[in-house]
Design a protein around this nucleic acid. Sequence first.
DNA 1: GTGAAAGCGCTAACAT
DNA 2: ATGTTAGCGCTTTCAC
Lengths: 337, 337
Amino acid sequence: MGQITLKDIAKALNLSPSTVSRAMQNHPAISPGTRRIVQEYAEEHKYKPNTLAMQLRTNRNNTIGVIVPEIVHYFFSTVLSGIQQEAENEGYNLLFCHSNEDYEREVRSVKTLLDARVCGILASQSKTTNHFQHFQEIIDNDVHLVFFDRICTGINTDKVVIDDYAGALHAVDHLIQTGCSRIAFLGSSPSMPIANNRRMGYEDALRRHKLPIDKRLSRICDTVELARAVVPEMLQLDPVPDAFFCINDEVAAYAMQIAKSAGFRVPEDISVCGFTNSYITDVTDPTLTTVDQHGFEMGQVAVRLLINRITGKETKQGVVSRLIKTELVVKNSTRSL
Amino acid sequence: MGQITLKDIAKALNLSPSTVSRAMQNHPAISPGTRRIVQEYAEEHKYKPNTLAMQLRTNRNNTIGVIVPEIVHYFFSTVLSGIQQEAENEGYNLLFCHSNEDYEREVRSVKTLLDARVCGILASQSKTTNHFQHFQEIIDNDVHLVFFDRICTGINTDKVVIDDYAGALHAVDHLIQTGCSRIAFLGSSPSMPIANNRRMGYEDALRRHKLPIDKRLSRICDTVELARAVVPEMLQLDPVPDAFFCINDEVAAYAMQIAKSAGFRVPEDISVCGFTNSYITDVTDPTLTTVDQHGFEMGQVAVRLLINRITGKETKQGVVSRLIKTELVVKNSTRSL
DNA sequence: GTGAAAGCGCTAACAT
DNA sequence: ATGTTAGCGCTTTCAC
C-alpha cells in the first residue's frame, strides 16, 4: 500500500502527472473542473506530496537545525520553546541536536545538520569548544548560521544575545541602593562573553557608586560543585560579603543555602541575586531575586533573523546583532529599598 | 558553487556515476585503485552525498519524530535528552515538535511529522487531548509509534511508562513508616493513567497499613495555581494532614512553602514528598524527598524500542510495554525512621 | 488547458 | 571491474 503518488492520481483520472501537479498547486492554467476533480480525488485518497522529492528538486528542505549545549536547563529549554513556536508558525521543521557541553558532540552535530542539508542553523556554543572550524564549515557550505546566547567569538556571523552588561549593572545597582557595599560576584570563565559582560556590568555599577573593586570578591563559580567549595571560603573573608551576585540561579540558590546554614540571615545579613529567573527562584526560602533573560523571546528573535536570511528578506551585508533586554525581578532574597 | 555531486566526480575522473557510487560504499567489485582515487577525490572536494536523493530512492530517511507536551519541564527535557543521545548513537536524526499541552498543536505536530515522512514517532500526550484520530493516522500510515509516559489509552501501540504505582506505593509506605497517618494526596486528573496509577499506589499503601482512605484528603492539584488554592483548604481540615504526597515536585515545593508560612514545621508537623527528583528538590528548605523517575533512561528505552520496530528487530506481534523503575530519594522534608 | 520529456542526485539491476 | 539504463516522486520548460 504505502503512499499514493501523483502518478497514481494521474493514471486513475486519465490525466498527465504534470496536470495533476499543477492542479494541486492551483496553477491558473488549469480549468476549475479539472482542479476540483483532482483535489477531491487527492483528498479522498489521502494523497500526501512526497516532501523528499520536492526537496530534491528544489534543493531546499524547510528545515532548521538547532544545537544547544544543554537541554535539561531552564534557560535553554525556554529558548528552544521560543524557537519551536516561531519555526512552526513559519512552516519550518526543527532538526534537534544536543552537544551536552561537549566539543566532539558539537562537531558531530554540525556534521549531522549539514548532511541533512538544513537551510539554516541556530547554535549556542558548548563550554568546552575552543576550535571553530566546524562552525566555519557551515558558512563555507553556504548554510545560514545564527548564534544565540553563547556566541562563538571566532566566527563572524549573525547573533542574538542577552544584554548581559545592562542586566548585571542594573542588578548590582539595586544591591547597592538597598544598602549592600561588599558585593561578591560568582562568575564564569572570562572567555565566555556572557560572563565577561556581566563582570563589566558588575564593576561599572561599583564604580558609579565609588565603591572599591576587590579582586577577592570576584570568583569563577558557575556550578553547584564550585559553589560548595567557593562560597564557604568567601564567607571566611573579613569583612564578610554582604551580597552575592551570581551567574545563574542554581549557584545563587546554593549560595543562599550555604550562607543560611552558616548562620547568616538572607537578606538581612547577606543579599543574594541570581540570573535567569528559572522555576527555582520561587521555591527557595526566601524566594530569589534574579534577572529575567527572556529566553522565549530570544528564541523567537533568533529564528526570525535566520528565516529572514534564508528567504533573503534580511539584506544587511555585514553581521546582524540583536540584543535582548533583561529585567530585574525583585523577590525576597534582597533587601527592600 | 553549491555542492559537488557523484556525477561531477564521475566526469572529473572519467568514470561512470555507478562506479563512483560503488567506490564510495566500498563495494567489493571495485578495484582498490579506483576506490582510492575516488575516495581521495571525494575527500579533497568535500563531497557530501545528498541524503535527500538517497532517501528518495530508499523511501527511508532515518529520522525520528518526537512530540512532547512541554519542554520547559525537568522531566520531559530529561527524557528528550535520553532520546537525543540514543538516537544519535544509532545514527538517527530527531525532528522535534512541541504540543505545548495543546490538542490542536499536537494534531498539527503529527501532520508535520507524517509530511516529513519520519520512520517513527515518539509521543507523550498533551493534557487536553481527548480525540485520538491523529494518533491512529500515524499507524494507518504504517509509521511506527511508541508512546512514553503520558500514553494514549485510546490507541493500542507500544509504550514505555514509569512504574507509577510502585513509586507511589513505596513513597507513601515510607511516609507511614516514619510516623505519618493522615496523608494527603495532591493528584491529577484520573483520566491520566500516570495519575490514576499513583492514586492506586497511594491507596494500597494506606490499606496495607490498615489506615482509612479519606476522600477529603485526595484532591486534584497538579499546578502551582491549584496548590495556592487547595493546600490552604486542606490545612483547615480537622485533624490536619500530617503529610502531603504530591504529583510533582513543583506542587510539593509550594505545598511546603504554604505549610511553613501557615506556621507548620516541615517535616516535624507535616512531611512533604514530591515526584520527579528535579533540580528544585535540592534548593527548597528543607530539601524535598521525592521519587526519581529516571527520565533519561525512559528516553533511551523508548528510542531503542522504536528503532527495533523500524529495523524489524522487535518482532513481537502485539503491543510491547516497558516499565521504568522508580526510586525513592529521601531528603529532608520527611521524617527520619 | 493539457501532455511529453527532462532532470534533481542517487542506486541497483542488468549488461559487457 | 566498469558502464548503461531505469527509476524513486516531483516540477517545469516546451510543445501543441
